[in-house]
């Protein structure tokens, strides 16, 4: 076999022509209809890399994230995890598959049970999916708290005692308890203040290096995507309108939708501000 024919490394996650339809029941005034939220999307993410899925509300980006996280089944196409075809409709994913893929949600106020102590939040995935003894579960949870920048003594506290950024750290810790290889992050920093957002993004980058994690990162914020992504997929109305490496997409967006997104994103560049201030002065002077 020549080197050129060496088979490519199996991607951690791969989608082939993923389709998702939602059935909207009819009412007295309206017929029942099907809405195609995801219209045949292909993608593959290699180990240790980050795929960013960018789109606006209603684009189907969260639907796709839920399919990748094995929460919803696609209505068409194939999903492969580590090269194995997964069909959660045919067979519920067992502990092994659940341990591979975990998810972090947007709103850390909604994704943590207010009546559950942090220790229980973190050990629950182990209780459900493994037979690790209680003492070790506790130790692992305490170690994980430190890993995400919290303290072991936070173990016995409740979610309301934490800030938004700390809660998102807890949600990340919970997702990592089973040592997953793939983390699906649905807008993980969009509910956070700018300075806290920077801390959580740094944490995600550190964890990726340390644990060799693969990320699927859903976001509407191009500046965050530019910071964290290796590959970018721009999605609009269920169609991946543009896919490529981060540098290719950011230096030369070719699809009109991607270009429109870039044009609408506010720029904080000093030259752009200077130009705007000058324009405003000129139009005021003209008005007087």
């Amino acid at each position: 076999m020549t080197p050129a024919m060496t088979p490519a490394i199996t991607p951690v996650v791969e989608g082939r022509a993923i389709v998702r339809d939602y059935h909207v029941p009819g009412t007295m005034l309206r017929r029942a209809r099907n809405v195609r939220a995801v219209k045949g999307i292909d993608f593959a993410v290699q180990k240790g890399k980050t795929l960013a899925i960018v789109g606006e509300s209603g684009s189907g980006k969260s639907t796709l994230a839920r399919i990748i996280a094995l929460i919803d089944a696609p209505t068409g196409g194939e999903l492969l995890i580590d090269g194995q075809r997964v069909d959660i409709d045919a067979r519920r994913p067992g502990p092994e598959l659940r341990s591979k893929v975990q998810m972090v949600f947007q709103n850390p106020y909604g994704s943590l049970n207010p009546r559950q102590k942090i220790g229980d939040v973190l050990t629950e995935p182990l209780v459900i999916n493994t037979d690790v003894p209680a003492a070790e579960r506790r130790d692992r949870a305490r170690a994980m708290l430190q890993k995400v920048g919290l303290l072991p003594e936070h173990y016995n506290r409740y979610p309301h005692m934490f800030s938004g950024g700390q809660r998102q750290r807890i949600a990340i810790a919970r997702a990592l308890m089973l040592n997953p290889s793939l983390l699906v992050l649905d807008e993980p920093v969009s509910a956070l203040d700018l300075s806290v957002q920077a801390q959580v993004l740094n944490l995600l980058a550190d964890l990726q290096d340390e644990m060799g994690l693969t990320y699927v990162f859903v976001s509407h914020d191009l500046s965050v995507v530019r910071y964290i992504a290796d590959e970018v997929m721009v999605i609009s109305e269920g169609v991946a309108v543009e896919q490529g490496t981060r540098d290719a997409i950011f230096s030369n967006p070719t699809h009109p939708y991607t270009q429109a997104l870039f044009a609408a994103t506010p720029v904080t560049d000093v030259d752009a501000i200077r130009a705007r201030v000058a324009r405003r002065r000129a139009s005021r002077a003209a008005a007087v």
Partner: peptide
Amino acid sequence: ALPEHATGDRL
């Protein structure tokens, strides 16, 4: 802390 002002790999 603006991600677009990131230099290097840490914010």
